[in-house]
Every structure is written in structure tokens, then in C-alpha cells.
Amino acid sequence: MFKKIVNIVVLVPLGVILIALSVANRQTVTLALNPFDTADSVLSVSAPFFLFLFLAVVVGLVLGAAAVWLSQGKYRRRARSEAHEALKWHREAEKHRSEAERLSQVNLPAPQN
């Protein structure tokens, strides 16, 4: 429930802002990738301005997510190794438990009448 409220509080205003941004910036602009010859049509792209803004946001999100994912690699590696070690100790404990049960079955004294 709380997650839905947070999503509504965040996503609805964000959607309204994005729609307003798209409507206000729909004129066509040219993005020239050649800094020395801006008239070069091979390295230029014409599109509505809001597309360039959205593309910049998406590229920023992807680069930020990649940076966080790469920086947290050591923690994921440690979690994997600790999970493997926990599984190894669990298997060893199960082996000892079954061995103890087997030995207790063998060494039970006969019932006295």
C-alpha cells in the first residue's frame, strides 16, 4: 500500500512534468557531433528537442546504474562466497547429525524387563 502511494506521489508529478516538457520543446533542433564543421550532415541528427532531453536522461540513468552495479561487485562476490561457505557448513552439519543418529541407534541399550 505504501509503495503504491509513493509511486503515485512520485510518478504522477513526474509524468505531468515530462508531458509539459514534451509539449513546450517540440521544435526541431539539430545535434551536430562534429565540433569543427557544424554544417556536416553526416554527423548531425535532427529531432524534436524533447527527444534529446529524454535520451540524455535515459543515458544518465543507464550509466548511473552501471556505475553502481560495478561498484557493488565486491559485495555481491562476498555474498556469493559466504553463501557457498554456509552451504558447505550446512552439509557438514547434516553429515554429522546423520552420523550421530546412526551411532545412537547402534549404541542403544537393550530394554530391561
Rank of each mutant, 00 (worst) to 15 (best):
S81I: 07
I17G: 02
K74F: 12
A110G: 08
W69H: 11
R80F: 10
E101Q: 13
G73D: 03
L108N: 03
E82G: 00
K74P: 00
K95Q: 08
L61C: 11
H84N: 15
T30V: 13
P109T: 01
R78P: 01
A83R: 13
I19K: 00
L108K: 15
Q105W: 14
K3L: 14
A56Q: 03
S22I: 04
L51Y: 06
N7S: 11
G60K: 00
I19E: 02
L55D: 08
L31R: 03
S104H: 11
V6N: 01
P109N: 09
H90Y: 13
P111F: 01
A65C: 12
P109G: 02
K3N: 12
H84I: 08
S41I: 05
L31S: 07
V57P: 03
E85N: 15
R91N: 15
F2G: 14
D37I: 09
G64F: 13
S44Y: 00
L51H: 08
L53S: 04
A32H: 08
V58N: 00
I8M: 08
S81C: 08
Y75E: 08
M1Y: 07
G15R: 02
Q72S: 12
V68E: 03
F54E: 01
K95G: 03
W89R: 09
A93H: 06
L87S: 10
L53K: 10
L55Y: 10
H84L: 15
K74E: 05
F49D: 06
E94R: 09
Y75K: 13
L55G: 15
